[in-house]
Amino acid sequence: MNDPHPPIAPFGGFGLGLRRAHYDDFLSETSRVPVDFVEVISENYMIEGGRQLRILEEVRERHPVILHGVSMSIGSAGGLDDGYLARLKALAERIEPLWVSDHLCWTRTSAHNSHDLLPLPLTGEALDAVCANIDHAQNTLGRAMLFENPSSYLTFPEDEMTEWEFLSEMARRTGCYTLLDVNNIYVASRNHGFSAQDYLAGLPLDRVRQIHLAGHDPATQDRPVIIDTHDREVCNPVWDLYAQAMQMIDQPVATMIERDEHIPPLVDLLTELDRARGAKLEPA
Protein backbone atom coordinates (compact mmCIF):
# COMPACT_ATOMS: atom_id res chain seq x y z
CA MET A 1 0.00 0.00 0.00
CA ASN A 2 1.21 3.47 -0.84
CA ASP A 3 0.61 5.15 2.51
CA PRO A 4 3.08 8.03 2.89
CA HIS A 5 0.78 10.25 4.93
CA PRO A 6 -0.06 10.06 8.63
CA PRO A 7 -2.96 7.68 9.21
CA ILE A 8 -6.39 9.15 9.89
CA ALA A 9 -7.33 8.04 13.38
CA PRO A 10 -10.87 6.77 13.86
CA PHE A 11 -13.22 9.37 15.33
CA GLY A 12 -16.54 8.24 16.70
CA GLY A 13 -19.45 10.60 16.93
CA PHE A 14 -22.56 12.07 15.35
CA GLY A 15 -22.74 15.24 13.34
CA LEU A 16 -24.57 17.36 10.80
CA GLY A 17 -23.76 19.35 7.73
CA LEU A 18 -23.43 23.06 8.53
CA ARG A 19 -25.96 24.95 6.42
CA ARG A 20 -26.73 28.68 6.29
CA ALA A 21 -30.21 28.17 7.68
CA HIS A 22 -28.64 26.96 10.92
CA TYR A 23 -25.82 29.51 11.34
CA ASP A 24 -27.64 31.26 14.20
CA ASP A 25 -28.16 27.96 16.03
CA PHE A 26 -24.48 27.09 15.77
CA LEU A 27 -23.37 30.56 16.86
CA SER A 28 -25.80 30.85 19.77
CA GLU A 29 -24.12 32.20 22.88
CA THR A 30 -26.65 30.51 25.17
CA SER A 31 -26.56 26.92 23.93
CA ARG A 32 -24.23 24.54 22.17
CA VAL A 33 -25.63 22.39 19.37
CA PRO A 34 -25.34 18.77 20.59
CA VAL A 35 -23.20 17.34 17.80
CA ASP A 36 -19.71 15.87 17.90
CA PHE A 37 -18.64 17.46 14.63
CA VAL A 38 -19.94 19.44 11.69
CA GLU A 39 -19.23 18.89 8.02
CA VAL A 40 -19.05 21.77 5.56
CA ILE A 41 -18.97 21.86 1.78
CA SER A 42 -15.36 22.88 1.19
CA GLU A 43 -16.04 24.98 -1.89
CA ASN A 44 -18.43 27.25 0.01
CA TYR A 45 -15.53 28.37 2.18
CA MET A 46 -12.68 28.34 -0.35
CA ILE A 47 -13.07 32.11 -0.44
CA GLU A 48 -10.84 34.97 0.51
CA GLY A 49 -12.77 36.66 3.30
CA GLY A 50 -16.10 37.92 4.54
CA ARG A 51 -18.87 36.81 6.86
CA GLN A 52 -19.15 33.21 5.72
CA LEU A 53 -15.49 32.42 6.42
CA ARG A 54 -15.67 34.20 9.79
CA ILE A 55 -18.69 32.11 10.75
CA LEU A 56 -16.87 28.90 9.89
CA GLU A 57 -13.95 29.98 12.06
CA GLU A 58 -16.32 30.67 14.96
CA VAL A 59 -18.05 27.31 14.52
CA ARG A 60 -14.62 25.67 14.40
CA GLU A 61 -13.87 27.09 17.86
CA ARG A 62 -16.85 25.08 19.15
CA HIS A 63 -16.83 21.89 17.06
CA PRO A 64 -14.45 19.70 15.07
CA VAL A 65 -15.00 20.34 11.36
CA ILE A 66 -14.81 18.03 8.34
CA LEU A 67 -14.15 19.53 4.89
CA HIS A 68 -16.25 17.73 2.28
CA GLY A 69 -15.68 18.72 -1.32
CA VAL A 70 -17.75 18.32 -4.45
CA SER A 71 -15.43 19.73 -7.11
CA MET A 72 -12.05 18.03 -6.88
CA SER A 73 -12.99 15.81 -9.84
CA ILE A 74 -10.71 12.99 -8.74
CA GLY A 75 -11.72 10.96 -11.78
CA SER A 76 -10.82 13.52 -14.43
CA ALA A 77 -8.66 12.00 -17.14
CA GLY A 78 -6.98 15.36 -17.58
CA GLY A 79 -5.73 15.55 -13.99
CA LEU A 80 -6.54 17.90 -11.16
CA ASP A 81 -6.85 21.68 -11.00
CA ASP A 82 -3.81 22.87 -9.03
CA GLY A 83 -5.46 26.21 -8.33
CA TYR A 84 -8.33 24.37 -6.71
CA LEU A 85 -5.94 22.26 -4.64
CA ALA A 86 -4.07 25.35 -3.47
CA ARG A 87 -7.32 26.93 -2.26
CA LEU A 88 -8.36 23.72 -0.51
CA LYS A 89 -4.97 23.41 1.15
CA ALA A 90 -5.19 26.99 2.42
CA LEU A 91 -8.64 26.31 3.88
CA ALA A 92 -7.45 23.08 5.51
CA GLU A 93 -4.53 24.89 7.09
CA ARG A 94 -6.88 27.59 8.35
CA ILE A 95 -9.57 25.27 9.74
CA GLU A 96 -7.50 22.23 10.79
CA PRO A 97 -10.29 19.77 9.95
CA LEU A 98 -10.69 16.24 11.22
CA TRP A 99 -10.14 15.24 7.60
CA VAL A 100 -10.75 16.29 4.00
CA SER A 101 -13.04 14.29 1.73
CA ASP A 102 -14.48 14.26 -1.77
CA HIS A 103 -16.29 11.83 -4.08
CA LEU A 104 -15.32 9.00 -6.37
CA CYS A 105 -16.53 10.75 -9.51
CA TRP A 106 -15.51 13.31 -12.06
CA THR A 107 -17.09 16.72 -12.54
CA ARG A 108 -15.22 18.39 -15.37
CA THR A 109 -13.15 18.23 -18.51
CA SER A 110 -10.53 20.81 -19.32
CA ALA A 111 -13.20 22.90 -21.04
CA HIS A 112 -16.36 22.48 -18.98
CA ASN A 113 -17.50 21.89 -15.43
CA SER A 114 -20.75 19.99 -14.99
CA HIS A 115 -21.04 20.79 -11.26
CA ASP A 116 -22.43 17.30 -10.86
CA LEU A 117 -20.92 14.06 -9.58
CA LEU A 118 -20.57 12.16 -12.85
CA PRO A 119 -20.02 8.39 -13.03
CA LEU A 120 -16.74 6.73 -13.93
CA PRO A 121 -16.41 3.65 -16.07
CA LEU A 122 -15.12 1.01 -13.70
CA THR A 123 -12.11 0.09 -15.79
CA GLY A 124 -8.41 -0.36 -15.18
CA GLU A 125 -7.72 2.83 -17.11
CA ALA A 126 -10.08 4.83 -14.89
CA LEU A 127 -8.59 3.25 -11.77
CA ASP A 128 -5.09 4.26 -12.87
CA ALA A 129 -6.27 7.82 -13.50
CA VAL A 130 -8.08 8.05 -10.16
CA CYS A 131 -5.14 6.66 -8.21
CA ALA A 132 -2.69 9.05 -9.90
CA ASN A 133 -5.01 11.94 -9.06
CA ILE A 134 -5.43 10.80 -5.45
CA ASP A 135 -1.66 10.56 -5.06
CA HIS A 136 -1.35 14.10 -6.43
CA ALA A 137 -4.11 15.47 -4.19
CA GLN A 138 -2.83 13.77 -1.04
CA ASN A 139 0.76 14.86 -1.73
CA THR A 140 -0.34 18.44 -2.39
CA LEU A 141 -2.52 18.60 0.72
CA GLY A 142 0.05 16.72 2.79
CA ARG A 143 -2.61 14.43 4.20
CA ALA A 144 -4.58 11.30 3.41
CA MET A 145 -8.13 11.87 2.21
CA LEU A 146 -11.50 10.13 2.36
CA PHE A 147 -13.45 9.39 -0.81
CA GLU A 148 -17.19 8.80 -0.89
CA ASN A 149 -18.96 6.13 -2.91
CA PRO A 150 -21.31 7.98 -5.28
CA SER A 151 -24.94 7.61 -6.21
CA SER A 152 -25.17 6.84 -9.90
CA TYR A 153 -27.79 6.63 -12.58
CA LEU A 154 -26.00 4.63 -15.24
CA THR A 155 -23.20 2.09 -15.56
CA PHE A 156 -20.91 1.60 -18.52
CA PRO A 157 -20.95 -1.42 -20.83
CA GLU A 158 -17.17 -1.56 -20.60
CA ASP A 159 -17.06 -1.90 -16.79
CA GLU A 160 -14.39 -4.40 -15.74
CA MET A 161 -15.06 -4.55 -11.99
CA THR A 162 -17.65 -3.72 -9.38
CA GLU A 163 -17.67 -0.39 -7.60
CA TRP A 164 -16.63 -1.98 -4.34
CA GLU A 165 -13.70 -3.67 -6.10
CA PHE A 166 -12.76 -0.30 -7.57
CA LEU A 167 -12.94 1.40 -4.16
CA SER A 168 -10.97 -1.39 -2.51
CA GLU A 169 -8.17 -1.25 -5.04
CA MET A 170 -8.14 2.54 -4.85
CA ALA A 171 -7.64 2.43 -1.08
CA ARG A 172 -5.01 -0.28 -1.38
CA ARG A 173 -2.98 1.63 -3.96
CA THR A 174 -3.20 5.13 -2.53
CA GLY A 175 -3.74 4.74 1.22
CA CYS A 176 -6.91 6.81 1.01
CA TYR A 177 -9.85 6.15 3.32
CA THR A 178 -13.54 5.61 2.67
CA LEU A 179 -16.50 7.85 3.36
CA LEU A 180 -19.30 5.31 3.27
CA ASP A 181 -22.54 6.86 2.04
CA VAL A 182 -25.13 4.28 2.98
CA ASN A 183 -27.89 6.03 1.06
CA ASN A 184 -25.70 6.03 -2.06
CA ILE A 185 -25.16 2.29 -1.76
CA TYR A 186 -28.91 1.84 -1.51
CA VAL A 187 -29.64 4.15 -4.46
CA ALA A 188 -26.98 2.59 -6.72
CA SER A 189 -27.91 -0.97 -5.74
CA ARG A 190 -31.54 -0.37 -6.64
CA ASN A 191 -30.71 1.54 -9.83
CA HIS A 192 -28.23 -1.06 -11.08
CA GLY A 193 -29.55 -4.25 -9.54
CA PHE A 194 -26.73 -5.38 -7.26
CA SER A 195 -26.77 -6.47 -3.65
CA ALA A 196 -26.11 -3.75 -1.10
CA GLN A 197 -24.92 -6.46 1.29
CA ASP A 198 -22.38 -7.70 -1.27
CA TYR A 199 -21.21 -4.10 -1.63
CA LEU A 200 -20.64 -3.74 2.10
CA ALA A 201 -18.98 -7.14 2.39
CA GLY A 202 -16.64 -6.34 -0.48
CA LEU A 203 -15.25 -3.11 0.94
CA PRO A 204 -12.19 -2.78 3.15
CA LEU A 205 -14.33 -1.63 6.06
CA ASP A 206 -11.28 -0.95 8.24
CA ARG A 207 -10.69 2.08 5.95
CA VAL A 208 -14.10 3.62 6.73
CA ARG A 209 -13.85 6.75 8.84
CA GLN A 210 -17.21 8.38 8.16
CA ILE A 211 -20.76 7.48 7.23
CA HIS A 212 -23.29 9.64 5.39
CA LEU A 213 -27.02 9.16 5.75
CA ALA A 214 -29.49 11.03 3.54
CA GLY A 215 -32.88 10.91 1.90
CA HIS A 216 -33.63 10.27 -1.76
CA ASP A 217 -36.41 10.64 -4.31
CA PRO A 218 -37.91 7.18 -4.95
CA ALA A 219 -38.37 5.76 -8.42
CA THR A 220 -41.75 6.22 -10.08
CA GLN A 221 -43.56 4.49 -12.90
CA ASP A 222 -42.54 7.28 -15.25
CA ARG A 223 -38.98 7.49 -13.96
CA PRO A 224 -37.68 4.13 -12.81
CA VAL A 225 -34.54 5.63 -11.27
CA ILE A 226 -33.97 6.59 -7.63
CA ILE A 227 -32.39 10.02 -7.36
CA ASP A 228 -30.09 11.07 -4.54
CA THR A 229 -31.66 14.36 -3.48
CA HIS A 230 -30.77 15.02 0.20
CA ASP A 231 -34.12 16.73 0.50
CA ARG A 232 -36.03 14.52 2.95
CA GLU A 233 -35.68 12.15 5.87
CA VAL A 234 -33.64 8.98 5.66
CA CYS A 235 -35.90 6.09 4.65
CA ASN A 236 -36.25 2.85 6.59
CA PRO A 237 -34.34 0.59 4.17
CA VAL A 238 -31.36 2.95 4.44
CA TRP A 239 -31.60 2.87 8.24
CA ASP A 240 -31.59 -0.93 8.04
CA LEU A 241 -28.52 -0.88 5.81
CA TYR A 242 -26.84 1.52 8.21
CA ALA A 243 -27.50 -0.87 11.09
CA GLN A 244 -25.97 -3.71 9.07
CA ALA A 245 -22.92 -1.60 8.25
CA MET A 246 -22.42 -0.66 11.89
CA GLN A 247 -22.44 -4.31 12.84
CA MET A 248 -19.70 -4.99 10.28
CA ILE A 249 -17.41 -2.06 11.15
CA ASP A 250 -15.17 -2.57 14.16
CA GLN A 251 -13.63 0.87 14.61
CA PRO A 252 -15.41 4.08 15.70
CA VAL A 253 -16.81 6.10 12.79
CA ALA A 254 -18.29 9.58 12.40
CA THR A 255 -21.94 9.37 11.34
CA MET A 256 -23.88 12.29 9.95
CA ILE A 257 -27.15 13.25 8.30
CA GLU A 258 -26.87 15.19 5.04
CA ARG A 259 -29.62 17.62 4.09
CA ASP A 260 -29.11 20.07 1.23
CA GLU A 261 -32.64 20.93 0.09
CA HIS A 262 -35.86 21.63 1.99
CA ILE A 263 -33.74 22.16 5.06
CA PRO A 264 -35.88 21.78 8.20
CA PRO A 265 -35.36 23.44 11.59
CA LEU A 266 -32.22 22.19 13.30
CA VAL A 267 -34.22 20.41 15.98
CA ASP A 268 -35.71 18.10 13.34
CA LEU A 269 -32.29 17.07 12.09
CA LEU A 270 -31.08 16.52 15.66
CA THR A 271 -34.05 14.24 16.24
CA GLU A 272 -33.16 12.30 13.11
CA LEU A 273 -29.55 12.14 14.26
CA ASP A 274 -30.76 10.61 17.54
CA ARG A 275 -32.07 7.70 15.49
CA ALA A 276 -28.53 7.13 14.22
CA ARG A 277 -27.27 7.21 17.79
CA GLY A 278 -29.91 4.64 18.74
CA ALA A 279 -29.09 2.40 15.80
CA LYS A 280 -25.45 2.39 16.79
CA LEU A 281 -26.26 1.44 20.35
CA GLU A 282 -28.32 -1.57 19.37
CA PRO A 283 -26.51 -4.83 20.17
CA ALA A 284 -25.14 -6.76 17.21
Binding site: S76, T109, A111, S114, L118, P121, L154, E158, R223
Partner: peptide, 28 residues
Protein backbone atom coordinates in the same frame (compact mmCIF):
# COMPACT_ATOMS: atom_id res chain seq x y z
CA UNK B 1 -15.40 9.30 -22.97
CA UNK B 2 -15.54 12.18 -20.54
CA UNK B 3 -15.54 14.77 -23.31
CA UNK B 4 -18.38 12.88 -25.04
CA UNK B 5 -20.32 12.63 -21.78
CA UNK B 6 -20.11 16.37 -21.20
CA UNK B 7 -21.17 17.04 -24.79
CA UNK B 8 -24.18 14.80 -24.23
CA UNK B 9 -25.11 16.69 -21.07
CA UNK B 10 -24.80 20.07 -22.75
CA UNK B 11 -26.64 19.12 -25.94
CA UNK B 12 -29.71 16.85 -26.09
CA UNK B 13 -29.14 16.19 -29.78
CA UNK B 14 -25.75 14.52 -29.21
CA UNK B 15 -26.03 10.83 -30.25
CA UNK B 16 -25.61 8.28 -27.48
CA UNK B 17 -22.24 6.50 -27.38
CA UNK B 18 -21.99 3.11 -29.07
CA UNK B 19 -23.38 0.33 -26.92
CA UNK B 20 -25.71 2.55 -24.92
CA UNK B 21 -29.37 1.65 -24.66
CA UNK B 22 -32.53 2.94 -23.05
CA UNK B 23 -31.30 2.55 -19.49
CA UNK B 24 -28.26 4.67 -20.31
CA UNK B 25 -30.45 7.28 -21.95
CA UNK B 26 -32.58 7.39 -18.82
CA UNK B 27 -29.53 7.76 -16.59
CA UNK B 28 -28.10 10.45 -18.82
Amino acid sequence: KQAAFVRAILDDSTPLPEGWGNSHALGL
